[in-house]
Simulated scan of single mutants.
Amino acid sequence: MKKIPLLDLKAQLDTIREDIYAAVHRVLESGHYIIGPEVKAFEEEVAAYIGVKHAIGVANGTDALQLALHAAGIGPGDEVITTPFTFFATAETVSQLGAVPVFVDVDPKTCNIDVDQIRSKINERTKAIIPVHIFGQPANMDEIMAIAKEHGLFVLEDAAQAMGSEFKGVRIGGLGHAATFSFFPTKNLGGYGDGGMVVTNDDELARKIRILRVHGSNPKYYHSMIGYNSRLDELQAAMLRIKLRHLDAWNDARREKAALYDELLKDVPVVTPHHAENRKHIYHLYIIQAEERDELMEHLKQHGIASGVYYPVPLHLQEVYKELGYKEGDLPVAEYLSKRTFALPLYPELPEEDIRFIVQTIRDFYAGKQ
């Protein structure tokens, strides 16, 4: 039976293997493995790519969120508005600082935070907004920044899934007061282990994050803050530098394959991703909606096709947040999407014939139900 994975990282490595091995060898021979020349160069290259003044490499995308919020002064008693339709780290980091995540429902088309509902959640305790550029499509940053300016709020873009995407021609990461990226292996720009980054144009915020990532010290052994041990490895930085050169081409390939899915699925009873105006969607995941999701996913599995649910339980209904008082029905769009959305295989090297086979398998599923 043909096997089609959700993502094939080995196929990507095969296209850059010699460069990756050379980068690893260079670092091993250097004898410098933590925050050295490779990290510095990668930070400079990402800052130039995004179009911001500062990029600070950290251990992972979750730490990037926490360090950025910490540096912005978010703490006990504060409220941070965000989406319930995202990976847990978005809200987890707010809670770890003693602040409270306040969830706003999402737009049914883009799955991003519904900007029309943000104002109703703002009060004197509100200090920040975290929009998530979910699945690689930017949130409505014009409206979010306008609301933030009106109320004096800090905006942290959770861009873990959106490296290379654009809003009105501006690269994501340069629109909020700061933004965070994840280099988890499955991301569009993924390492061979964990890694993360904070980007910002704010000099003082960048200074604090650089101190926080090394136990709150500057210089070494002189501590001005209670910090973290959150440093990007030289090995990861060296390999990510190689991958960054290919990112735009890989994202373009994802967009082309997503367009083929769109075309082939247009008369199939599923909902394909909505591509909002003035946004460059880079399809970290190709997410469709189906009323018979679980049954359809099982059918695909029986034919050797992998798929995945992102996310089965919205954050406001997670057990750990019971004390916040949310109940089923409070954020109906996120709840609706959590029961119907799932990802089909999508990666730059995915053969066109595999996409056609996947779509035909979906067609066969619905033909069998008639």
Rank of each mutant, 00 (worst) to 15 (best):
L6R: 08
A23M: 07
A23R: 00
H25Y: 10
E29M: 13
I34F: 08
I34N: 06
E44K: 15
Y49I: 05
A55P: 10
L65P: 01
Q66P: 04
A72W: 00
G73R: 12
D78S: 04
D78N: 06
T82F: 00
P84N: 12
A89G: 11
S95R: 13
L97C: 09
V115I: 15
I122A: 09
K127A: 04
A128T: 10
I134D: 01
I144W: 02
A148W: 01
A148H: 00
K149N: 15
F154V: 05
V155S: 12
F167W: 13
K168R: 15
H177M: 06
F183V: 06
T186F: 09
N188M: 08
N188F: 00
G191P: 03
T200A: 08
A206D: 05
R207T: 07
R210D: 13
R210Q: 14
L212G: 01
N218A: 14
Y221K: 14
H223G: 09
L232I: 10
E234Q: 11
K243W: 01
K243R: 15
L244V: 06
L247D: 09
A249N: 11
D252G: 10
D262G: 04
D267N: 14
P269W: 00
V271T: 15
I287E: 01
I287S: 02
K301V: 08
A306W: 08
V309F: 07
Y311R: 08
P312A: 12
E319V: 10
K327T: 14
D330P: 07
V333C: 08
A334V: 06
R340D: 02
P348S: 06
E353D: 13
I355A: 00
F357N: 04
D364V: 06
F365Q: 03
